[in-house]
């Protein structure tokens, strides 16, 4: 196995950083999934146990972490599609940079309203609008 990325697409510049971010988001989502399957498994213990763990998902700080998780998954998914396009589309390598800026644009456009809707309850609870 290669111990360091080789080839022009991956050494330095956006190509490398997009790959580093792909790796970090992949690891983060994977470890969340371990925890998530275990917390969902509490439905086999009792409704109370499950509702108790899910209550933590509704607190302001964890709510913010969920936005981070969604942002990580969304980046990983969009950049994953870009990697697939680079691999299978004949012109993919030539347009890899444009595709990176495109997916980053899509990420921002989705995350702006997404963050608002995900955090709406928390914002209301903290700043006192209708709960």
């Amino acid at each position: 196995m290669a111990t360091a990325p080789v080839g022009t697409l991956y050494r330095g510049g956006e190509g490398m950083w997009s790959w580093v971010a792909q790796r970090i988001t992949g690891i983060a989502v994977f470890f969340f999934l371990y925890v998530h399957v275990v917390d969902t498994a509490l439905v086999r213990v009792s409704p109370e146990a499950y509702d108790l763990i899910i209550a933590t998902y509704k607190t302001p700080i964890v709510n913010l972490l969920e936005v981070g998780l969604v942002g990580a998954v969304l980046y990983h998914a969009l950049n994953g599609l870009r990697v697939i396009a680079i691999d299978f589309w004949a012109r993919g390598p030539r347009y890899q940079r444009q595709m990176l800026w495109t997916i980053l644009g899509v990420w921002v456009v989705v995350m702006l309203p997404g963050t608002y809707y995900m955090m709406r309850h928390t914002i209301d609870a903290l700043f006192g609008a209708t709960p």
Partner: peptide
């Protein structure tokens, strides 16, 4: 996964509506 995240976090009430009965 993106479908799951949309349903769980955004659709009517998002995470606030999740409980045993929902599942």
């Amino acid at each position: 996964v993106l479908g799951h995240l949309f349903i769980m976090n955004i659709l009517d009430g998002g995470v606030q509506r999740i409980n045993f009965a929902f599942v």
